[in-house]
């Protein structure tokens, strides 16, 4: 096992440029699911902040607190504030004039939870609104529906690029990464022939290929992380938490190693 590990590492060191290219291509392929969700370089358009207000039933202090706590746990919520009926009345009077002060009392106004929602698409927005309108203590959910519908894409649609194109790019990157890795492997064909003729088992050659795949996978995952941090978007952080991108990079790297030449082919070349 240590010999396989050592040889995998030496193989990558033997062709540093092709190694770097493989890693970059794998990282690029691993970014595609993120692109497809409307990320990277298109954050503002993909996740506009929609102002929301929940009008609360009077006297539901406990419900208000639980709603606020639940909303705070969602990372797509920003600028969360709670307004008492008095605060709402003051806001209204500030806008319409104090002449109405005698007419409007605090009882005419509900308590409000106000925040901005970073929604990625219409379906997400509508699901969110529908879910919270049924929540205990919430009388009404208010948001600029028409404006939001104009600004947000349909569910599943990528605002940045056509999804099919993205997957074609991902597939191409993966294939090119596989071919690069194959080139890296074949640059040491004399060594592999030596190994095979000295009695290296197919299992050991399999481990060499596995280690190669793992090395480039881990490197691609690191590049993926660095690029995500560089983008500094909430979506990137969410992805980091889920580890989806990392797993994706590792999966792509391991499957890219399937492009490597097998023992039989190397023997036949001899």
């Amino acid at each position: 096992m240590s010999l396989a590990l050592q040889q995998a590492w030496r193989t990558l060191r033997h062709s540093p440029l092709a190694f770097v290219l493989t890693v970059v291509l794998l990282a690029a392929a691993a970014f595609v699911p993120w692109f497809a969700r409307g990320g990277f370089g298109n954050q503002q358009e993909a996740a506009p902040e929609i102002p929301f207000e929940f009008e609360l039933a009077s006297g539901h202090v406990t419900a208000r607190d639980s709603i606020v706590n639940a909303l705070r746990k969602l990372n797509k919520i920003q600028d969360l504030v709670t307004l008492s009926p008095g605060d709402v009345r003051r806001e209204v009077l500030a806008e319409l004039g104090d002449s109405l002060a005698d007419i409007l009392s605090e009882r005419d106004f509900p308590a409000i939870v106000r925040f901005k929602l970073a929604a990625r698409n219409v379906a997400e927005l509508q699901t969110f609104a529908a879910k919270w309108s049924r929540a205990p203590g919430v009388v009404r959910v208010v948001y600029p529906e028409e404006i939001a519908l104009n600004r947000l894409p349909e569910a599943g649609a990528s605002p940045a690029m056509d999804r099919t194109k993205l997957w074609v790019i991902a597939g191409t990157s993966w294939v090119l990464a596989g071919l690069c890795l194959r080139a890296v492997f074949l640059r040491r064909r004399a060594t592999w022939r030596l190994f095979i003729w000295l009695g290296c088992s197919p299992a050991m050659m399999f481990f060499v290929r596995l280690w190669l795949g793992l090395f480039v996978s881990v490197c691609a995952a690191v590049v993926w992380c660095l690029a995500s941090f560089a983008a500094r978007s909430p979506m990137a952080i969410e992805y980091m938490e889920l580890g989806t991108g990392l797993l994706w990079a590792v999966l792509l790297g391991l499957t890219a190693s399937l492009w490597l030449v097998g023992t039989g082919r190397l023997e036949a070349e001899g």
Binding site: A190, R193, L194, I196, W197, L198, G199, C200, S201, G270
Partner: peptide
């Protein structure tokens, strides 16, 4: 594999 491990090969290709 077992057979090759019983050999000592000294070839120009190796």
């Amino acid at each position: 594999t077992k057979f090759r491990r019983e050999l000592g090969l000294l070839l120009p290709e190796l």
